[in-house]
């Protein structure tokens, strides 16, 4: 196999990498804050809000991501009455499904992180006169973030691989292009190339998270 042929497989696949990475970035950047808001909702003293948030998390974690993807991409437009207003670009609809699904997982991760913080931290902040907002942003969140980094890293790597589910809703991404070349040239090399690219992304993520962990080390 010569270099030119290799590049003829790789270059279309790089087109797919763009979609994969774009989905990953959008999903992670939007689902983390949404997940944190969900955690706050779960912990809210207002019962209906807490109940709604818990139900939401239960549904999103209890049904397959693939089903949710199919629902957002093909199901929404079929809804009676409002369906015709919900015809979204397939990539947009799929991204929405990823954000909403991963937010539920992040919410549970953050909830665990908050549970790990001693109530003495709140009491010390209170007697020093810190406001609720100052306590949350300056005392609680930095500690929560440190505790939740490893599970967040874990979810991030899962997310990279889950982007391949776009294949099922016909949004072209890395795996889609690999499969196309496999069919065209009757070779399995593109699968190995795709695997290599997923591993590269996962590797980069691992480096980033290891760096963050070191940076936030305090014990």
């Amino acid at each position: 196999m010569n270099f030119d042929y290799f590049m003829s497989m790789l270059i279309p696949m790089l087109e797919g990498v763009k979609a994969t990475v774009l989905l990953f970035v959008l999903a992670i950047v939007l689902s983390i804050p949404l997940g944190f808001m969900l955690t706050l909702a779960v912990r809210s003293s207002m019962k209906p809000i807490s109940f709604l948030a818990q139900t939401y998390i239960y549904i999103m974690r209890g049904t397959p991501l693939l089903l949710q993807l199919l629902f957002f991409v093909f199901g929404l437009p079929l809804l009676p009455v409002i369906g015709e207003f919900l015809v979204l670009d397939r990539f947009v609809a799929a991204t929405l499904a990823f954000i909403l699904n991963y937010a539920a997982y992040f919410a549970e991760i953050f909830r665990g992180g908050l549970l790990s913080i001693d109530k003495g931290q709140y009491e010390a902040s209170q007697v020093l006169g810190l406001s609720k907002w100052q306590t949350t942003t300056r005392v609680i969140l930095p500690q929560m973030f440190r505790v939740t980094l490893p599970p967040i890293a874990n979810e991030s790597v899962s997310l990279v691989k889950d982007t391949a589910l776009l294949y099922a809703v016909a949004v072209p991404e890395l795996l889609h292009y690999a499969q196309t070349v496999v069919n065209r040239d009757f070779t399995i090399i593109p699968f190995f190339i795709a695997a290599g690219i997923y591993l590269l992304i996962a590797f980069a993520l691992t480096i980033v998270f290891k760096y963050l962990e070191r940076k936030l080390q305090y014990d």
Binding site: G120, Q121, E123, A124, V139, L216, Y218, D219
Partner: peptide, 10 residues
């Protein structure tokens, strides 16, 4: 406090 309650991240 008995358990000090220092802020561990600072």
């Amino acid at each position: 406090f008995q358990q000090f309650n220092l802020f561990p991240h600072l």
